[in-house]
Nucleic acid binder design. Structure first.
Length: 938
RNA sequence: GGGCGGUUAGCUCAGUUGGUAGAGCGUCGGCUUUACACGCCGAAUGUCGGGGGUUCGAGCCCCUCACCGCCCACCA
């Protein structure tokens, strides 16, 4: 005896305890001896919070994980978090600034302590949020990129790559963030078009015979100019190549050189060359053996004196008025100086690409420094081959093209960062600057002692590694590498990586390179690339736009006031607050209701169409919340019908509707399994929704009612079959839906499964349904579909004629074949109940029917007599419309069949189908025509 | 400049070997039918961006144009 479910479906109540129970029972640890299946969680920022992108991605991974776990595979979803070097350090530094402090005052040790403390405070937040989402990670194996184990692995990789000559230290131009005062990689620089100016500056010829006009967007770098370049074939300047110019402001002589790099069409066709402050100029400088003159300090102020690299050059004195000025102040000042000397020819409005750091938003400066690099070419080559040869498959496939494009042009990777939070580089410097790379300081020291012939004091490189360096190792370091652990043997290569396209370069490509290098195998066999979650207008969600939705708010709900407060708090641009508040009040006038986790997850799945960005619409969550409610109530119904256990035992006879719904379930199971295996989550969600709502609820439950009703004419065996089917189909459906909607299905399954003798700790460990298409019964399907068609025909008359649903109707049937007669006989109970009939009578073939509304089900005439209930004019209008529709179809069909080429070239079966259609249309039109005539006589 | 994706019902989107277009939401009409009003029943709605081609037949294949979006790229 089972208690019935409470009336309203309340997600909050069932979700919270459920997860705790799963975790306590260790349900998410790999079990059994099945095929290993493993997904690596892309480690989120340890101090971060869950955003919609995470929630979406986590939902997809959890669906996959749960399906495979239920299939009996040895399944591991490996969780962990990332130290997120720059992001976390910036955050803590901002906290310090608010407290009036500064990391440099604090010193490295104290600062790091402070960051660890922050990690301690906020570290568990995002993983707690993932639990709210139902993510079935094995938390007992949670890792953090700065754990000692992972840190050792990072050092090991660094040392090995260095020993193999794949990591080197070099001085070159890097992308320098002058606000953070660190180098960043190419990928961390975002170039965007901004409005600026193009200044045309006259550089006088040394011999006083005139001047060349140079166009530049960055006049402040003029101080470091070492040449002016023209195109070798440019006739305007051919004679001048080799001559010298007087560099304004600095009054230094610089040569005019010829180089292909110059586009004669652009500006004046003369380019100032500043090798230390521009990537192109650097190249030109290399080709022409020019000196590099650095004029900036690390925070992009003008130096007191020029720093010279390369050739001996008399760089000259920087005018005192410029020293120490910020680059933009210096720009202004230099322009003023030029204007004063009448060397500024003109200033044009000009759109240019401005490089900014993705974290700091500071304008990035090409800057000459010593950094550590990974020589990428030897790693990229096998990584390209792995995808070419199909050992890694991108889904959707087209992303492999993006991958190839990037990998084929990849440049060496700058991996050192001038930060404190991260893996400190295992390199030590001797007194003469000689580098000792080692796993431990003692190792470096003994090596140094050997080298110098005596012990010396070494200084460790203060820099840390790019966060992505440790992320690149994630698939094997989390499994225990460099130890040869059983986990590593079992779960590497992992099965699939689920990720957004935005980190294909940052992460995916680097994992492939590192995995192949250190594990000699790919890190994952498939990469499923999903789209971005955007707001309802298609805008990217961002704090500054104030359009961010918090997944937890969709689960628990939030009041309008709280939402407004949340969105306007802590803005970088506080002046946006008013606008954000207004938009928020308009879009969420009543706040956000609590939809529950399952509704949110179902929505993510339903929106996850192949590779496309998602416009997130609250209406969809609401609709799916309703679906959850439907599931809840349908289960209530099934349980109410089966309260007496005795009713479920004994002989069972399955009626055609039972056999039909069992068949529908098989089709649904096949569709869902196939969709999941192809990462077509939307298809899976759709199949579940349509099966459960349209087939099970709308039809099967309704069809079960006449059987189970009191005073029903059905035998106990038939009723027993119906009751069992109600439960068994529901139970299988719950298992089928569980990966998408884990909480609700667990709650319901715990009540439903025992009724049919199934039980277990959790639905999460119950077997995933597999379709058995042998259970599809074509006869039962045909009968049930016929029954549904007849009921629909009658309901349609009701609807269109505005007959009250409660009013019992007399029904007349005519024509049809023996099959129809048998079916009417067999399905009378259902016909009477589901279409509310008062009576049912057959008319003879030649018998004149009374005035009636006509519907056709194949050749069967379904007549609802007009007397007293029907508006003749309305029925006539309906008939006319129907006739018109059929006429149009008929005309098309006739035209097609009339084409000789169609008959001769189309496959016979297509032609036959077309002929059959024509026959049906003709028959239907005949019927409708006669009916119209009859009504006209009234 | 190169590459990728998109353009289908009022809105958001499906549409997997080419065979007369589907869903959700919204809209309209009717319902206290004892699982569910977070519901039930019924209905309406599309020159599938434009043009051309291949084919008996094109939303789907080919070419071309337009517009939108994204990624990459050293034009000062």
């Amino acid at each position: 005896m089972t208690d019935t479910l409470d009336r309203p479906f309340a997600p909050a109540e069932i979700e919270t305890q459920c997860y705790a129970r799963w975790e306590v029972h260790g349900l998410f640890q790999p079990k059994g001896s099945g095929t290993p299946y493993c997904i690596m969680l892309p480690p989120p920022n340890v101090t971060g919070t869950l955003h919609m992108g995470h929630a979406f991605q986590d939902t997809l991974m959890d669906i996959l994980t749960r399906v495979h776990r239920m299939r009996g595979e040895r399944t591991l979803w490996q969780p962990g978090t990332d130290h997120a070097g720059i992001a976390t350090q910036m955050l803590v530094e901002r906290q310090l600034v608010q407290e009036g402090g500064d990391r440099h005052q604090m010193g490295r040790g104290a600062f790091l302590e402070r960051v660890w403390q922050w990690r301690q405070e906020s570290g568990g937040h995002i993983t707690r949020q993932m639990r709210r989402l139902g993510a079935s990670c094995d938390w007992s194996r949670e890792r953090f990129t700065l754990d000692s184990g992972l840190s050792h692995a990072v050092t090991e990789v660094f040392v090995r790559l260095h020993d193999e000559g794949l990591i080197y230290r070099g001085k070159r131009l890097v992308n320098w963030d002058p606000v953070l005062r660190t180098a960043v990689s190419d990928l961390e620089v975002i170039s965007e078009a901004e409005q600026g100016s193009l200044w045309h500056i006259r550089y006088p010829l040394s011999d006083g015979t005139g001047a060349l006009v140079v166009a530049t967007t960055r006049p402040e770098t003029l101080l470091g100019d070492v040449a002016v370049a023209v195109h070798p074939d440019d006739p305007r300047y051919a004679a001048l190549v080799g001559k010298t110019l007087r560099l304004p402001v600095m009054n230094r002589e610089i040569p005019i050189i010829a180089d292909d790099y110059v586009d004669p069409e652009f500006g004046s066709g003369c380019v100032k060359i500043t090798p230390a402050h521009d990537f192109n100029d650097y190249q030109v400088g290399q080709r022409h053996s020019l000196a590099l003159l650095n004029v900036f300090t690390p925070d992009a102020r003008i130096r007191d004196s020029i720093e010279v690299f390369g050739n001996d050059v008399v760089a000259g004195e920087i005018p005192e008025t410029l020293r120490g000025l910020d680059r933009y102040a210096a720009r202004k000042q230099i322009l003023a100086l030029l204007a004063a000397e009448n060397l500024l020819e003109r200033t044009d409005e000009h759109q240019l690409m401005v490089p900014r750091g993705d974290r700091s938003q500071a304008v990035i400066e090409p800057y000459l420094t010593d950094q550590w690099y990974v020589r990428v070419a030897p790693l990229a080559e096998p990584a390209i081959r792995a995808v070419e040869e199909g050992r890694i498959r991108f889904v959707p496939e087209n992303w492999s093209k993006t991958y190839f494009d990037w990998m084929q042009r990849i440049e060496d990777w700058c991996i050192s960062r001038q930060l404190w939070w991260g893996h400190q580089i295992p390199a030590w410097y001797g007194p003469d600057g000689k580098i000792f790379v080692a796993r431990r300081e003692e190792e470096a020291q003994s090596e140094a002692a050997r080298h110098y012939g005596m012990p010396v004091a070494l200084e460790r490189d203060p820099d840390v590694l790019d966060t992505w360096f440790s992320s690149a190792l994630w698939p094997f370091t989390t499994l225990g590498w460099p130890e040869k652990t059983p986990d590593l043997a079992q779960f590497y290569p992992t099965s699939v990586l689920v990720t957004g396209f935005d980190i294909i370069f940052f992460w995916v490509a680097r994992m492939i390179m590192m995995g192949l290098r250190f594990m000699d195998d790919v890190p994952f066999r498939e990469v499923h690339v999903h789209g971005l979650v955007r707001d309802a207008e298609g805008q990217k969600m961002s704090k500054s736009k104030g359009n961010v939705l918090d997944p937890i708010d969709l689960i628990d709900g939030i009041s309008l006031e709280d939402l407004v407060a949340k969105r306007t708090r802590g803005l970088m641009q506080p002046q946006m607050a008013a606008r954000i508040e207004k938009a928020t009040r308009k879009e969420f006038a009543d706040g956000i209701p609590a939809f529950g986790t399952d509704a949110l997850r179902f929505t993510f799945a339903a929106l996850a169409t192949q590779g496309r960005d998602i416009k997130f619409d609250l209406k969809r969550v609401e609709g799916n919340r309703n679906f959850c409610n439907k599931l809840w109530n349908a289960s209530r119904f099934a349980l109410m019908q089966t309260q007496n256990p005795a009713d479920l035992e004994g002989v069972r006879e399955l009626l055609p509707p039972e056999r039909w719904i069992i068949g529908r379930l098989q089709h649904c199971e096949a569709a869902v399994n196939s969709a999941i295996d192809q990462y077509r989550f939307a298809d899976a969600a759709h199949a579940l929704y349509q099966f459960f709502w349209n087939d099970y609820c709308d039809w099967y439950i309704e069809l079960s009612k006449p059987v189970l009703r009191e005073g029903s004419p059905f035998t106990p065996a038939q009723q027993c079959g119906t009751r069992n089917t109600l439960l068994r189909v529901l139970e299988a459906g719950l298992r089928l839906m569980h990966p998408v909607m884990p909480f609700l299905t667990e709650e319901l399954w715990q009540r439903v499964a025992p009724m049919i003798g199934e039980s277990g700790d959790s639905i999460a460990l119950a077997p995933y349904p597999v379709a058995d298409l042998a259970r599809v019964d074509a006869d039962a399907d045909a009968d049930t579909e016929w029954l549904i068609a007849v009921i629909r025909a009658i309901r349609s008359v009701r609807g269109e004629m505005d007959i009250s649903p409660g009013k019992p109707l007399p029904l007349l049937l005519q024509a049809g074949d023996t099959h129809d007669r048998e079916r009417v006989e067999r399905y009378q109970s259902w016909l009477f109940a589901l279409s509310r009939l008062a009576s049912l009578e057959w008319l003879g073939a030649d018998e004149e029917a009374p005035p009636a509304a006509l519907q056709l089900v194949g050749d069967l005439r379904v007549l609802v007599p007009l007397a007293g209930v029907i508006n003749v004019a309305a029925e006539q209008a309906r008939l006319a419309k129907e006739q018109q529709r059929l006429e149009q179809d008929r005309a098309k069909t006739v035209a097609k069949l009339g084409q000789e080429s169609f008959r001769s070239r189309a496959p016979a079966e297509v032609v036959a189908k077309e002929e059959e259609r024509l026959r049906e249309l003709d028959a239907a039109l005949l019927q409708l025509g006669e009916q119209a005539r009859r009504l006209a006589l009234l």
